[in-house]
Design a protein around this nucleic acid. Sequence first.
DNA 1: GTAATTGTTCTAGC
DNA 2: CGCTAGAACAATTA
Length: 258
Amino acid sequence: MAELPDLTVFAKTLNKRFKGKNLERLEIKVAKKINVTGKELKTALEGEKLVQVTREGKTLQLHFSKDQVLGIHLMLRGELVLLDQENQEPKFEILGFHFKDGTGFAVVDLQKMATPTLNPEKTTVPDALEMDLPYFSSLLAKKRTLIKTLLMDQHMIRGIGNSYADEILWHAKISPFSVAKSIPEQAVKKLFKSLMLVLEKAIDEISKENGDELTGELRDFMKVHGAKIEKSPTGAIIKSDKIGGRTTYYTDEQEIYS
DNA sequence: GTAATTGTTCTAGC
DNA sequence: CGCTAGAACAATTA
């Protein structure tokens, strides 16, 4: 699925291609996940100008004129595709954005779980790339939960999902089974650095490979998270286990604090 | 036919 | 009561 780095690149690409354009028609194929009726959404957005696209945690936010904002959460299988002459109605379409100049893009999801939200409420939970070390370290200090569970908790930090949590923990050489408050200060600092580094590097790589396209996930550079990966770059056997029902990949190189 | 997939939300339990 | 862990759910593919 798309996680923070993918979404950051999607936002960038959408800005490059569609910023400033006027939305002529909004095609609504699946309305059941929207927080308003399809009719209300069309009324709110059709005829408005796309002012800017941003990323908020795991959602994309399309800012239109008249202060209308559409948040889009792609959930686990949602994707964005470009529309052109040959491809006006992609498979599994949820929403189709058709601009006045004939260009457009669509949100597709084979599981129909992508969730569009008109004018989503603002939250005070910091985004993974925007939080600072004091926040991160005081958060860890008061939580008894497993570190991986905490990294993925959207009420604490927004943007990190199952796969990048594994990558970040491996990079920091900390076991996902560590208890958050038991991790010593030095290791917390290291984890914070790894978090920023892994995410920023992923944005870079995806951005480079994706160009101006809107292809799905690109994760060839994943080092430990993936059923087909057998060894870490440093040669350690990759083990897998379940944490909170999610498959977790890790190696013995990672220290466990408990 | 069945397991696997994954973020969110709800519920049960300590 | 507050916090944490786990189950349920959505829909499709391998």
